[in-house]
Computed example of a mutant assay.
Amino acid sequence: MTATIRADAATLAASYPTRHFRISHDLASHPLLQLPRLIELTKELEKDRFEYNSGKLQPNQKAEDTPLVDLTPEQVVSQIETAGAWMVLKRVESVPAYRAMMEEALLSIAKQLGYESLDGASFRDIEGYIFVSSANSVTPFHCDNEDNFFVQIRGPKFFHLFDNDDRSLVSEEMLESAPSKHRNLPYDPSFEARAKVYDLKPGEGVFVPYQVPHWVRTGDDYSISMAITWRSDAVVRRNKLIFMNAWLREKGYPQAAPGVNATLDGLKVAAYTAARSALEPLRRNETMRRLLRSAVFGKKANYYYEAQKAAEQKKAA
């Protein structure tokens, strides 16, 4: 079974990597992305690799008001037609078969860009996220800290994408990222005049550039989608900066945007790199990842455990 992503050559040359554009792919029938295999995948991933809640949200959903569902990850996927839920299975590249599929897909687009390897195309730090959503579900307005070839596998999906070069929609401070900051961002219906809406069907997709604001909704049937993401060296460096800015701001120290003070940026990157190198061996364990997030950022850093906790409490009762 092949895994190929395709883009119009002229569009690819004109728009990549700063502007969103439509793509096509042959992943819709891939056995790794069918519902029975995804049910099995919920048994293979660690607990912090799931995030799920009710799909009955709004683009401007406040994180603290997000309704949950009292199901286990396996139940969410197996009952997705009736669950009224939204779920993401995170970091699926940790399963070798999924990583191989993703690398094959990215290599196909790398060759269209004129490169013979993933590294040559700066497709590094590759991660995979699979979304399983009930009909008429919404993923609220947010930005992601990686580039992304988003592929639609099953059902309809509507991807509302924006450009934000002037930061009029999302400020530099809002773009700062840390485990204690929920990804949902403030949204106003007036933003929609600036949206490009991609109506995605199986076999179709969209390139989502780094930190471009967007929100997503499903149609009248349940949906399976996948985000095949990566980070170039430049993106990795910027992510270190916005992480440090978020952390320092939480401590009460206002921060300049990346690029304003090159010397200070360099010190922040060095500090992040040193700290992450020391902690990385511990982060290979799910329990330690959870403890480290709580120690550095407090209980808010583990907000995605709340749905699982609610399900476990109901089962115990």
Rank of each mutant, 00 (worst) to 15 (best):
H142T: 05
R6T: 09
S29F: 06
P67H: 05
N285H: 13
V76R: 14
R37E: 05
M101H: 05
K300E: 00
Y129D: 08
Y272A: 11
T139E: 01
L200I: 02
V151F: 06
Y305D: 14
L282M: 09
V206E: 09
L33Q: 08
F162L: 10
S294H: 04
Q34I: 02
G203C: 04
G266S: 14
D119C: 11
S223T: 13
P281H: 08
A317Q: 09
G203M: 06
T4P: 08
A262D: 15
Y303H: 10
A105Y: 01
P254T: 15
A83C: 05
M87F: 06
E173V: 14
D125P: 01
A28H: 14
D144L: 15
N285P: 08
N148V: 06
L32F: 01
E93A: 01
V92R: 05
D199N: 08
Q308M: 07
Y303Q: 04
S232A: 15
G114E: 10
E104I: 10
G203Q: 03
V77E: 13
Q79V: 13
M101L: 04
Q211N: 02
L45C: 03
R231F: 14
W86G: 08
Y198G: 00
V269G: 14
D119Q: 08
Q79K: 03
V77F: 00
V138T: 08
L267N: 06
L12H: 13
K300N: 01
S277W: 10
N148Q: 09
D48R: 13
Y222T: 03
V95G: 05
K111A: 08
R154S: 02
D119S: 15
T82V: 14
L169H: 03
K268V: 12
L292W: 07
R284T: 07
R290Y: 14
M101C: 05
N261L: 15
L267I: 15
A100H: 12
Q61H: 05
A278M: 09
H30R: 15
V88H: 11
G219A: 09
I153G: 01
V236Q: 12
R289N: 12
N136H: 00
N53Y: 01
R194Y: 00
L35Y: 13
A270M: 05
G219F: 07
D125S: 01
R194E: 11
S171Y: 09
P31R: 10
F131A: 03
I130M: 04
G114A: 06
A311N: 00
L106H: 03
A63D: 09
A110F: 05
T72I: 07
P31N: 03
V212E: 11
V138C: 06
R293N: 08
A178G: 02
A100T: 15
N136P: 00
D70K: 04
P67R: 04
